[in-house]
């Protein structure tokens, strides 16, 4: 149950960082999530992101930062197997769920729904 508490807190804090980037940094939402994805990738490169996921569960895996982590981990694990070329070929290995489901569901939505304005 402890993980629920930390999921809430860590997830909330990552969002607060995002909010500060919006309000104080005056970034657009697109710029803000881009910064966070890159930050996630950097933390992943420093082997700091998986421990965060182990500690906070969904609090670290749900924010967009974990996308950066997944990309780096995919690249690294493929690089271990196939050498340098694995960095390019392995990037999407771990993370296809997010992108595939977003494409599929967004497309399905466009078939059925219309924007309300």
């Amino acid at each position: 149950m402890q993980i629920y508490f930390w999921a809430f807190v860590v997830g909330g804090l990552i969002c607060v960082i995002g909010q500060l980037l919006l309000d104080v940094g005056k970034l657009t939402p697109a710029h803000m999530v881009t910064v966070l994805v890159v930050a996630g990738a950097i933390l992943s490169g420093l082997e700091l992101y998986q421990p965060l996921i182990d500690f906070a569960g969904a609090g670290a895996s749900v924010p967009i930062t974990s996308f950066g982590n997944a990309l780096v981990q995919g690249a690294l694990s493929e690089a271990k197997r196939s050498g340098l070329v694995g960095i390019v070929t392995g990037i999407f290995e771990v993370t296809s769920a997010g992108i595939s489901s977003a494409i599929i569901f967004a497309f399905l939505a466009s078939l059925v729904f219309r924007p309300k304005g």
């Binding site: 997830g11 909330g12 990552i14 969002c15 607060v16 960082i17 995002g18 909010q19 980037l21 919006l22 309000d23 939402p29 803000m32 999530v33 966070l36 749900v62 924010p63 967009i64 930062t65 974990s66 996308f67 997010g98 977003a102």
Partner: peptide, 11 residues
């Protein structure tokens, strides 16, 4: 604000 934009829901 960022509460919905930062999680994968924003994406």
């Amino acid at each position: 604000g960022a509460g919905t934009a930062v999680p994968v829901t924003g994406f």
